[in-house]
Design a binder for these strands. Structure first.
Lengths: 392, 392
DNA sequence: GAAGCTTATGAAAGCGTTTGCAGTAAATTC
DNA sequence: GAATTTACTGCAAACGCTTTCATAAGCTTC
C-alpha cells in the first residue's frame, strides 16, 4: 500500500526525472520519517525493551541524554562529567553524578569504543582453557588487565591452527586493543592477519622477532631436566612429550634434553621419546610404551608435569616405586607437583608471571608503539623426591 | 590565537546577539570543518595509523566504503553482501567478495554492535580461572558459544563480592549479550545490577528463581558422599570444606552430608568440619587439623576433589594408608581423581556440561525471552579405591 | 509495448558516545 | 564599571556500520 502510494506520488510530482536531487530526497526523508516515526524500527523500540526473564517490556537502559535531561545540562557535559570530571564545575558535576546514580546509568562502551577506537578489551587465544598452565596464565593476565580497566576475551584452539585463525579474526572484528597468543608457530594465514592487525600482539612461551613476547627458555628447561638426571648417573633416559610437530614448546624441550644428553655422549633416539596427548592418561600411556622397550630407561623426563605425574601413577601401578625403581622429572612446577607422592622434581616455569608480564607488555605497547621486545623469564630446577642417583 | 580570532570575528559580524541561530552555526561549522579539515583530529588521523611494532605509519584498516569504492557499488550493498548475501545479485556479490578479500576487510564489530544492539559476546564471571573446575566449565562454554559465533569475556572475582560487582558493571558497559555467574549468592548491589541488566543471566551450580540456572544438587552430592561412608560402616566422619559463609556450593555440600549423617543418628559437629582454602595445601591443612582431634575420624569427605587429594597426600605423609587406615571421598570427579594413588572415590559432577548447558541456556534466552528456567544436571557416586569398609 | 511485479541498488538516518569549536558565564584586572 | 581573561557549557560532527525507504532495473503478462 505504502509502496504503490509513493510510486503514484512519484509520478504526480514527476520527481523521478531529475538527477542530483539528493537534498530533495533528504527533505522528503525528513518528512517521511517524521510521519512514519512511531512505526519505524528505531522509534518503535527506542524506549522499550523486552525483559528476558519475564516477557514484560521495561524501559530501556538510560543513556547519556537521559542523564543530561534529568540533570538539566547538555549531553556533552554529562559525557565530560563521566570521563574528565576536572572539566566541569563542581556543582554541575555533583548534579550530574546524582542523576546518573538515580537513573542507574552505565556508560555505553560500544559507542565509546566506536568513537575512541579503543574497546578496552584484549583477546587471549590459548590451546585450551582446561589446563592448569594456561588457566593460571590467564588468571594472572586477567587480574593484571582488570586493574588497568581492561577486560579479557578468551578463545581456545584445541591445538588447531584453523581455529586459531578464526579466533584471531573474531577478536580483530570485535576491535580488541591487544592480542595474546601462545607459541610462535602458526599458519601462514594467521601470521598475515597478525602482521596487518595494527594491534599490539604479545606471544607467550616462545618468541617471534615480529612481535613482543614473554618467553621461557624451553630448550633450557629440557636441558636442565636432562642434566639433573645425568648428574645422578642416569645414562638411559626416556622422555614423554606432546606432539612436537605442532607444539614448539614441547619440541624445544625435547631438543634441549637431547642436546644435553649428547654432550654426555648419551643419545635420545626416537624410540625413547613417546609423543602423547598432554593429559594424565597420555603420561600413563607414554610410560607404558617406554617401559615395554627392550632396555627400559632408568629415568624419564615428562614434557610437562601432567605427563610426568601420569607417568608416576603408571609406574606405581606397575609396581615400580619412584624414585627407587625409576626417577621421574617434570617441567612446569604445577602446584600439584609438590603434593603428589612422592613430591615431584621438576623444572619451575613462572607460569603466572608469563600472564602477568604479557598483560604488562600489552599495556605498555598500547601506550607507546615501538620495536618488538622479548622478555625472557628464568627457569629453574626444583629438586624433590621423585629422582635419586642411579642404583647400580 | 585561534580562539581570540574567532571571538573577534564574533564581534565584527555581531552574530552573538541572535538566538536560535543553530542552522547558521551549522553552516559555519560546515565551512570551518572544511577549512580546518586536514588539521582536525578526525581528518588528520583518518587514513593513517601508527603501527605498534615499528613506529611507522600504515594505512588504516579498510572499511565498508573502501570495499564499496573498490567494487564500484554503494556501501549499503557491501553491507548486505556481508550479512545477507541472498539480497545481492550473484555477480555483484562476487565482485564485492573479491574486493573485500583483496583489501583484507574485517567487519567492524563495534559499529555493528552499536547499530544492532548485539555485541555477540557473553561474559562469564568465576571465582578464579585457576581451578580445574571453572577452567573446564569455561572451556566447554567457550567452545559451545564460539560455534554460535559468540565470544567469551571472562573475569574472576577471587571470591570477592566487590570484585564481582565491578566485573558485572564492566561487562554490562561493554554491552555483553548474556552473563554467566557462579552460585546464587551475591551482594545486594550485584543483584540489583543483574535484575536491571536487561540481559539474559544464567547461573551455574546454584539456582535463583529470578534467573536461568544450570545446577547440580550440591546437597545431594554431600549426602551421597556421606551415605557411601555410612554404608561402609563409618560412624566417625570428618569433612574438609571451603568457606561455607561465602560459598553456597560448599555450604550445601556440608549441609547435605550433615543431614544424611543425622538420618543415621551420626552428628557432624563443627569441630569435625575444617574450613580451608580450596587448594591442595588447604586439604592437607584441614586433614592435619581433623587428625589431631581427640577422636580422629575414620573417614573424611572432601568438599571438593582438590581438598580430598590434599587430604590423601597429608595422610600418606603421616604414614596413614588410604583406604586401609582411613577412607577419603571427594566431590567433583576431576580427571586427576582417577589418576592419584589410590584412585579416588568421589561424587561425579558434570563440570563440563554445566558450561555447555549454560552456554545453550544463554543462547536460547537471547533468542526468546521467557520465565527463568532451571536445568539440574545429575550427580553420581563413583567408587574407586580410596574408601573401604570400616575395619573393626 | 505499456502496466504491473519482483529484485537489486542507493541515499541517508540512525546507534550512543567523544570532542573541536563557539559561545556564554564567571572571575580577574585595570 | 568596562575590558579582558578564564572556566565552563553547548552544539553538531564523527566513529563505521545496518536498515528503511525510494527508486531503478529486470522481468512478466496481456
Amino acid at each position: 500500500m505504502g509502496k504503490s502510494m509513493s510510486s503514484l506520488l512519484r509520478k504526480w510530482t514527476n520527481l523521478g526525472k531529475f538527477k542530483n536531487m539528493y537534498r530533495d530526497n533528504a527533505d522528503r526523508y525528513g518528512k517521511t520519517t517524521a510521519a512514519y516515526g512511531p512505526f519505524s524500527r528505531h522509534r518503535y523500540c527506542k524506549n522499550l525493551q523486552l525483559c528476558h526473564f519475564s516477557n514484560m517490556t521495561f524501559e530501556r537502559r538510560s543513556r547519556l541524554d537521559d542523564v543530561a535531561r534529568d540533570a538539566g545540562v547538555s549531553l556533552a557535559t554529562v559525557s565530560r562529567a563521566m570521563t574528565r570530571p576536572e572539566l566541569v564545575r563542581a556543582t554541575t558535576l555533583a548534579r550530574v553524578r546524582s542523576s546518573a546514580q538515580k537513573l542507574g546509568y552505565i556508560p555505553g562502551g560500544v559507542a565509546r569504543a566506536l568513537v575512541s577506537g579503543k574497546s578496552m578489551t584484549v583477546g587471549a587465544i590459548v590451546p585450551t582453557l582446561d589446563s592448569a598452565i594456561f588457566a593460571k596464565t590467564l588468571q594472572a593476565m586477567q587480574s593484571t588487565l582488570s586493574q588497568a580497566g581492561y577486560l579479557l576475551l578468551v578463545a581456545s584452539t584445541n591445538y588447531n591452527n584453523d581455529a586459531e585463525v578464526e579466533a584471531i579474526r573474531g577478536f580483530l572484528a570485535r576491535g580488541v586493543d591487544g592480542l595474546f597468543l601462545v607459541g610462535a608457530e602458526r599458519s601462514r594465514q594467521a601470521s598475515d592477519l597478525l602482521r596487518n592487525a595494527m594491534v599490539p600482539v604479545t606471544l607467550g612461551w616462545c618468541a617471534d622477532p615480529l612481535f613482543d613476547a614473554v618467553t621461557v627458555d624451553n630448550h633450557l628447561a629440557g636441558a636442565l631436566a636432562a642434566r639433573h638426571l645425568l648428574d645422578l648417573g642416569h645414562r638411559n633416559i626416556g622422555m614423554i612429550a606432546g606432539q612436537v610437530s605442532s607444539n614448539d614448546r614441547q619440541r624445544k624441550r625435547v631438543e634441549g634434553a637431547r642436546a644435553t644428553l649428547l654432550e654426555y655422549g648419551v643419545a635420545l633416539p626416537e624410540w625413547l621419546v613417546s609423543e602423547q596427548p598432554l593429559t594424565l592418561a597420555g603420561g600413563r600411556q607414554g610410560c607404558a610404551v617406554l617401559m615395554s622397550a627392550a632396555h627400559p630407561p632408568t629415568a624419564i623426563i615428562g614434557g610437562n608435569d601432567i605427563l610426568a605425574i601420569g607417568c608416576i601413577t603408571e609406574l606405581q601401578l606397575q609396581g615400580i616405586s619412584v624414585p627407587q625403581g625409576l626417577s621421574v622429572v617434570g617441567i612446569d612446577n604445577l602446584e600439584l607437583a609438590a603434593h603428589v607422592t612422592p613430591p615431584m622434581t621438576t623444572i619451575h616455569l613462572p607460569t603466572g608471571r608469563i600472564g602477568e608480564q604479557a598483560a604488562l607488555s600489552l599495556l605498555r605497547r598500547m601506550a607507546n608503539p615501538g620495536p618488538p621486545q622479548e622478555i625472557e623469564l628464568p627457569v629453574e630446577l626444583v629438586i624433590r623426591k621423585s629422582t635419586e642417583p642411579l642404583s647400580t
